[in-house]
């Protein structure tokens, strides 16, 4: 049986209306389910959040609202980002099986509205630039762009919609005076934040080039980094003789961190002696944020010293 639209996509205005028109109460059942929902997200178990049966519709919707209220009151980036990724992936999985009509409705809601330009499926440049994932394949410079449109495939449209859902999930207004039941259950969530998520950097401010500083900042804020960004950061930190165990600890800040996989990959990078990408490659990856023109991020310290000496 087809599940109702609001249950599948609780972030939409239609879902919001359904909640407003219902007599939903924040009771223990709803709160328990909300905690489960966030816990599943933290553990990276998207399957748990798919447990939707039509009879559970309001419980599901209510748990989403309650989860957002808890996250709003806690303001913890780790939990917010984990939840955002899980909800976006869940929506993306459902959208992949969605009919054209529902997909259009979602696109309108999220601001990702593909159209036909010169007989090709295409998205307006502003929507594309706003929601394209941070990955080389999606960089505007490598795409077919004309007349205000970027050519895309159906799969890519859904990928951009997933990013739009994630952005919506990450954008949480503070909840200054949450109801007592929300406060009580929110305490349970804080126990999910790993202790080792705190980053202790051995090097001082200004030791790293702006591109690396930005990546470190994103890790600190528990943002999700794409494959290239992780590779850059790992090779850079290892080249700076930061022990694998410490790099791994930093990476544990990432919302989709997996202990075993990260350890294996870091050891692999170290064993194979992968070098730090050059500035030209950083540009291609879209990770260059300043025009230092030093050739490689590793030259930053020497270049800075030279600059100081000459001024």
């Amino acid at each position: 049986m087809e599940l109702p639209f609001p249950s599948k996509y609780p972030f939409t205005s239609e879902a919001k209306r359904a909640v407003e028109e219902s007599s939903l109460e924040l009771n223990d059942e709803v709160m328990e389910r909300a905690v489960q929902r966030v816990m599943a997200a933290v553990r990276g178990e998207p399957g748990a959040a798919y447990r939707i049966h039509p009879s559970d519709e309001m419980l599901e919707l209510g748990s989403y609202v309650a989860a957002r209220m808890m996250l709003s009151s806690l303001r913890n980036r780790f939990l917010i980002n984990k939840f955002a990724i899980a909800e976006a992936k869940r929506a993306s999985w459902l959208m992949g099986k969605e009919s054209g009509e529902n997909l259009k409705k979602l696109g309108d809601e999220l601001g990702v509205v593909p159209g036909d330009f010169e007989g090709r499926l295409a998205l307006p440049v502003p929507a594309y630039a706003s929601f394209s994932p941070r990955s080389v394949d999606y960089r505007l410079i490598f795409r077919n762009v004309k007349g205000g449109f970027v050519e895309v495939t159906r799969h890519e449209v859904i990928r951009l919609m997933e990013e739009a859902v994630k952005a919506r999930m990450e954008d949480l207004k503070p909840l200054p005076n949450p109801p007592k039941i929300v406060r009580d259950y929110a305490k349970k969530l804080m126990a999910l934040v790993p202790k080792e998520a705190e980053m202790k950097m051995s090097f001082g401010e200004g030791d790293n080039p702006p591109c690396i500083e930005r990546l470190l900042e994103q890790v600190r804020e528990h943002q999700n980094l794409n494959h290239q960004a992780r590779l850059v950061l790992a090779t850079y930190l290892l080249a700076k003789n930061v022990p694998i165990v410490k790099v791994q600890s930093m990476f544990s800040n990432l919302p989709d961190y997996e202990d075993r996989v990260t350890k294996y990959q870091l050891e692999h990078i170290s064993r194979r002696g992968y070098s730090v990408p050059s500035c030209a490659t950083m540009l291609s990856y879209g990770l260059c944020v300043a025009d230092c023109r030093i050739g490689s991020p590793l030259r930053w310290r020497n270049w800075k010293k030279g600059k100081k000496g000459s001024s």
């Binding site: 960089r139 505007l140 410079i141 950083m282 291609s284 879209g286 260059c288």
Partner: peptide, 15 residues
């Protein structure tokens, strides 16, 4: 998003 557009017109990272 503005950076993507700026990189596009300036050909930054064009490989």
């Amino acid at each position: 998003a503005r950076r993507e557009i700026s990189d596009y017109v300036s050909g930054k990272g064009l490989n």
